[in-house]
């Protein structure tokens, strides 16, 4: 569904990503792990061209991503993203946050878009919070609105960039459960996270990155039971202290 070929990203201070080659399949839940600075977030952001690769290619289905507005807009409608710091539109209610893009990007009528937004918010368990402004919501609720905002586009893939890293510990669970529920519906998810418990339970596949390289790419259970590299073994050991 998404293919990455010879991807290299350099912000000018040495490559963050060095020749990454990956394929993401439909219906697969992939967790990307690795230490800070290993390039996992950059890789994720290259998948919808929020970061333009320095070299190499990203393909979504049969479209090769190039920096042309029409192509990027078309691909981003299908590849949604959820950010670490939510980035909800602060001047809009939860419902408006979720109906804006369906209306303006997909061209749906106000009624249809609102209905979609409401369905998405109900799906993430926020049916009583439709008309709340982001500043009146907890971190976990905000992140679930952000997930609903992605869902309302009915995307084919959702990218999660450390979705629980900015949350209070007691809010982490509700967000992970929401993501797990999407996984159970066989949605295609690519999740950058440090939550090992989540990865063990929900992921089909784990990609372990270090210093801009994919060090391991394995089925989730075999990765945690028997990591192939020393680097991954140490990383897992440190996560579980």
């Amino acid at each position: 569904m998404i293919t990455v070929e010879n991807l290299l990203k350099d912000f000018g201070q040495g490559p963050i990503l060095k020749d990454v080659n990956l394929t993401f399949k439909e219906g697969e839940v992939t967790v990307i792990m690795g230490p800070s600075g290993s390039g996992k977030s950059t890789l994720l952001r290259c998948l919808n061209f929020l970061e333009i690769p320095t070299e190499g290619q990203v393909m979504f289905e049969d479209i090769t991503l190039i920096e042309t507005p029409a192509i990027l807009q078309a691909v981003r409608q299908e590849v949604a993203m959820v950010f670490q710091s939510f980035y909800l539109f602060n001047h809009m209610t939860a419902l408006e946050n979720c109906s804006l893009a369906p209306r303006k990007v997909l061209g749906l009528s106000k009624e249809v878009a609102s209905q979609r937004a409401e369905d998405a918010l109900v799906e993430v368990g926020l049916k009583d919070f439709l008309h709340r402004l982001p500043k009146t919501l907890s971190g976990g609720q905000k992140q679930r609105v952000a997930i609903a905002r992605a869902l309302a586009m009915k995307p084919k893939v959702i990218l999660f960039d450390e979705p629980t890293s900015a949350l209070d510990p007691e809010n982490v669970q509700e967000v992970l459960q929401t993501i797990a529920a999407l996984a159970a519906k066989k949605m295609t998810l690519i999740v950058v996270t440090h939550e090992m418990g989540f990865a063990k339970k929900v992921a089909d596949r784990v990609i372990f990155m270090d210093e801009g390289n994919v060090v391991e790419d394995a089925k989730a259970h075999s990765f945690f039971i028997a990591p192939k590299t020393e680097r991954a073994r140490n990383f897992i050991k440190n996560l579980s202290y």
């Binding site: 929020l50 981003r76 409608q77 993203m81 710091s85 909800l88 539109f89 303006k104 990007v105």
Partner: peptide
């Protein structure tokens, strides 16, 4: 404004104008 505001909007497929 946080740069994330425009990243979020762009990632939903909006144009720069929108």
């Amino acid at each position: 404004l946080d740069v994330g505001q425009s990243e979020a909007a762009l990632s939903l497929g909006m144009t720069h104008g929108q």
